[in-house]
Design a binder for these strands. Structure first.
Length: 259
DNA sequence: TTGCATGTTCCGGA
DNA sequence: GTCCGGAACATGCA
């Protein structure tokens, strides 16, 4: 699931159910998903703490407590599930935050991603690795400046979390489709006005996707067309192309997005 | 059984 | 130093 809009949904979900609440206990069903400490260490650092307002940077959810921060990454299949009562856990519930009023579960089928605790910005950066500015926050000028130094293809640049944080495979394709730029287009051959157009498309796509808490697979979106039996461009009706670009399956319209 | 899936990381090579 | 592709990680589904 998770790209930026999904994680932003989790941020709001966390804010609703966990912010302002004290941690009574932490239950770890899969200790491998607690990445930089063990279950005892996680409990020792969190129990008794109270979560304040969470924030998001790229695909990371950061939950401060006044003491250490809890860092969550959702990989490709992670999500949060709250329940007021102690229901039977789902088989993919890896870590449960037991709050005084209910339980917030970190569920993750494929076990990519995980949970970290950080007591300082240095510890946080050790977990997240270098991250560029958040894709929803970055202004056009800075976006253009970052890309102007970049070689290689545009799709690979958009997906690089060190450059801009938050974009994954579906979002990158959606943005490039909306901006009418071929995913393999070398960044060096994109003029400033084209980069600005990509930035604009990025903002529009992210704002709309955030309202859906996902990249919506609906009419008028590439994501709503790319997995059809006979995938067609929602704008011009051309047959969509599929190929591996920057290590992932890209979808684009050969008519709207010329090389 | 095989290929593919919205994540990141690491390695080798250009 | 940059960038890319491929493999690895892990699990389930078509």
């Amino acid at each position: 699931m998770p790209e930026l809009p999904d994680v932003d949904g989790f941020r709001r979900y966390f804010a609703r159910y966990a912010a302002g609440h004290h941690v009574a206990a932490v239950e770890v069903a899969d200790r491998d998903l607690v990445r930089n400490t063990d279950p005892q260490g996680l409990a020792r650092r969190l129990v008794g703490r109270r979560f304040s307002t969470p924030r998001r940077h790229g695909k990371w959810l950061i939950a401060p407590t006044g003491g250490p921060e809890l860092l969550l990454h959702f990989g490709m299949t992670g999500l949060l599930v709250y329940s007021a009562r102690d229901l039977e856990p789902h088989r993919h519930d890896r870590v449960t935050l037991v709050l005084a009023e209910g339980r917030l579960r970190y569920r993750n089928m494929r076990r990519l991603g995980g949970i970290w605790v950080a007591g300082s910005p240095a510890e946080r950066e050790a977990a997240t690795g270098p991250l560029g500015p958040d894709a929803l926050e970055i202004e056009a000028n800075e976006f253009v400046q970052l890309l102007e130094r970049r070689r290689g293809g545009i799709k690979s640049a958009l997906m690089d979390q060190r450059l801009v944080a938050g974009l994954g495979n579906l979002l990158s394709d959606e943005i490039l489709w909306r901006a009418r730029i071929h995913p393999r287009r070398p960044v060096a051959r994109l003029r400033r006005d084209r980069l600005e157009r990509i930035h604009d498309a990025m903002r529009q796509v992210l704002r709309a996707a955030n309202r859906h808490r996902r990249v919506p697979p609906i009419a008028g979106w590439l994501t709503g067309a790319r997995n059809a039996q006979d995938p067609r461009c929602p704008r011009c009706g051309s047959r969509l192309r599929r190929a591996t670009v920057a290590g992932r399956t890209a979808a684009w319209c050969p008519r709207c997005q010329r090389r």
